[in-house]
């Protein structure tokens, strides 16, 4: 061991001071805050501009309508956090709902029918996950294929005809209102809130949750840290499949009919809800709270445009514009946070 005092003094660490943001700023991320403000402004505007928006009936109708989109978006959020994407969620909702409905009309007890639907969704997710992790297909391609396959199966097994006359006990799942105080809260809304809490806690508090963020943030770093990145990915696709199935079953039970065309195009609403809520398509950024706000904003825009008399045929264009704005904002925020440091 030698002494080289000459070298020791000359490289005094330059004072690198990085200021910590105050606690209130850290607790909610910038995009969530931005989107929450936009959401509240929009709600206030609609409440003033229309007589019908802020009625108990309309509020719960909206909540019910966006609950299954939000539930599927929780799963989508998990996938996007790993820098993946699942385009098959809409088809998955239709097929899982159909599976549960077909079991129910064939006198399978309702809990088992629901379980059948969940297993269907889980299997779709498992296949997606295997395509991505084993065959190394890009998630976009793998799940695009699955979008078509799952939709094709719903048409194939039904011959294009909807499955009707579902048992009332099955429809109850989607139609039952539970009295909370003096408010009749639809069951799907309660399911959504419970799942939001569970998935949110899972992502923020558990080891697997943290590994999901790590894989999206820097997959190579996660791998050399000993994280089984392929298992993490498989897990998020299966979870996404199961959550889409829950959404699909609730939707089918609410409508009381399993149509092969159900949930067509929902994948875009679901992805949009996640992205508007601040989930970065590049992976590693986003929260369930944000997704919930994103889904709520999507629904109030849809309902609001109706109430304001905005032409129905033009609505997709308006929604598309909102999505583009959200993604642009996300990019801008990313660039800014990079240049700040």
């Amino acid at each position: 061991m030698q002494e080289r005092a000459a070298g020791a003094g000359k490289s005094a660490p330059s004072a690198q001071i990085t200021r910590e943001r105050p606690a209130w700023r850290r607790s909610i991320n910038v995009q969530e805050l931005g989107i929450l403000v936009i959401f509240l402004l929009w709600v206030i505007f609609l409440s003033l501009a229309t007589d019908t928006f802020l009625t108990t009936r309309n509020v719960f109708n909206m909540l019910r309508a966006f609950s299954w989109i939000a539930i599927a978006a929780f799963g989508q959020c998990m996938v996007i956090l790993t820098a993946g994407i699942d385009l098959s969620v809409g088809s998955n909702m239709a097929l899982s709902g159909l599976a549960a409905a077909m079991l129910a009309v064939n006198n399978v007890p309702v809990p088992l029918a629901v379980l059948g639907g969940l297993v269907t969704g889980g299997l779709i997710g498992l296949i997606n996950g295997l395509l991505v992790t084993r065959l190394r297909l890009p998630p976009f391609i793998a799940t695009l294929g699955m979008l078509s396959i799952a939709r094709g199966v719903t048409y194939g097994v039904t011959g294009g005809w909807p499955v009707r006359q579902l048992p009332p006990e099955f429809n109850q799942i989607g139609q039952l209102d539970i009295m909370v105080g003096s408010w009749p809260v639809p069951l799907p809304v309660i399911v959504m809130l419970v799942l939001a809490a569970l998935v949110s806690l899972f992502l923020s508090r558990t080891v697997t949750g943290r590994h999901i963020y790590a894989v999206g943030g820097n997959e190579e770093a996660a791998r050399v840290s000993g994280i089984k990145t392929q298992s993490v990915k498989l897990f998020v696709y299966v979870s996404c499949g199961v959550l889409a199935a829950i959404g699909g079953i609730l939707m089918t039970a609410r409508l009381g009919v399993a149509a092969p065309t159900a949930a067509e195009g929902y994948e875009l609403d679901i992805i949009a809800a996640a992205v508007i809520g601040g989930v970065s398509l590049f992976g590693g950024e986003g929260t369930i709270l944000g997704v919930l706000i994103g889904a709520a904003l999507m629904q109030t825009i849809r309902t609001g445009l109706n109430l304001l008399g905005f032409p129905t045929y033009w609505q997709p264009a308006a929604i598309g514009a909102v999505i583009l704005l959200a993604v642009t904002f996300d990019q801008w925020r990313k660039r800014r946070s990079r240049s700040v440091r």
Binding site: H211, Y213, A214, G284
Partner: peptide
């Protein structure tokens, strides 16, 4: 080889997180 989206403590313990309690695969 750090995950830039995670904080310093999370990176130091990445892959070796301290577990408070576990229920099967759910490790808090």
């Amino acid at each position: 080889m750090l995950a830039n989206n995670l904080d310093v403590a999370a990176n130091i313990f990445l892959g070796r997180e301290v577990v408070r309690w576990a229920l099967g695969p759910i490790r808090v």
